[in-house]
């Protein structure tokens, strides 16, 4: 008899605990701005705002994310601060967060999922993986479709001759995008060519002379620190450059071009 009563108690406790777990919404912390942005896309803005308890610095899209507590200065992490939010899920990035810090989070018994590096060609799969981590397959499928449709819409008509584009992400020293950056892949995908795609680093420093020598058709300046207008004026001196002669120097929003997001696709579409 005693054993039966004990069994009933145990069953009751287990069912109460699981009911509590089902009722408690997840407490999610994201450690890169890109993951936060895609989390909001997959879960939907309202649900994301309920479930996200902490985001990393620069998580500014959708704008409502700015209201969420910043728990990590990107790319450094404040492990203690993250733990203090008692998250049920921490989503980190393999290339943006340091492995030893991820390990520290795991040692604190936090559930950490690490997302692989983003690549333009592999974004649909990346989105589906994030959706599995978030346990939101429907939202993931929809987001991945949006991405694939957006990429398909960027395709140029046949006969388009590829343009050589120089993308400048920093003024001094001059930093551009190399062949392994997602933006270089994006240019390739839309039928254009990154001026420094032969360099293997994602963000190499190059000399001004090298840019003059390669003579790009267009110059895109990513406005990271509000100095893009000054950088553009610096290029205007070099009137023999094709991009300068044809007035094809464009200033781009860093928010649009720093992340592999739907906003990047929209921005690329506008630049066509």
């Amino acid at each position: 008899m005693k054993r039966v009563v004990n069994l009933i108690w145990a069953a009751l406790l287990i069912s109460m605990a699981s009911a509590h777990a089902a009722a408690t919404p997840p407490r999610i912390v994201t450690l890169t701005p890109g993951i936060a942005e895609w989390t909001a896309e997959i879960l939907g803005k309202d649900q994301a705002l309920k479930e996200l308890v902490g985001v990393s610095q620069y998580s500014n899209y959708p704008p409502e994310l700015k209201k969420i507590a910043t728990v990590a200065a990107f790319p450094q992490l404040d492990v203690e601060r993250i733990a203090s939010f008692k998250p049920t899920l921490v989503i980190a990035s393999e290339d943006a967060n340091r492995p030893e810090q991820i390990e520290k989070l795991r040692r604190l018994k936090l559930h950490v999922e690490v997302m692989p590096p983003q690549s333009f060609g592999g974004m649909a799969a990346w989105i589906q993986k994030l959706a599995r981590v978030l346990n939101a397959p429907v939202g993931g499928k929809a987001a991945a479709k949006k991405w694939s449709d957006g990429v398909a819409a960027l395709k140029r008509p046949s006969g388009h001759s590829p343009e050589q584009i120089f993308v400048q992400v920093q003024g001094s020293p001059i930093v551009t995008i190399g062949g392994t950056s997602f933006l270089s892949e994006a240019l390739q995908a839309v039928g254009d060519h990154n001026l420094f795609s032969d360099l293997k680093e994602p963000y190499p420093k190059v000399s001004r002379e090298a840019v003059l020598k390669r003579n790009p058709d267009r110059i895109w300046i990513v406005d990271e620190s509000g100095s893009a207008a000054r950088i553009r004026d610096g290029w205007k001196k070099f009137s023999s450059l094709k991009a300068v002669a044809q007035g094809r120097i464009e200033i781009l929003s860093a928010d649009d071009f720093a992340r592999c997001s739907l906003r990047l696709l929209n921005a690329l579409k506008r630049l066509h």
Binding site: F74, P75, Q170, G171, S172, P173, I174, V175, K205, S207, R208, E224, S225
Partner: peptide
Amino acid sequence: ADPLGVQSINFWLLGDLSR
């Protein structure tokens, strides 16, 4: 400092005649 500016500072500290 702003991490975006740190690379620029680092390069300057190592000696940079290009700017």
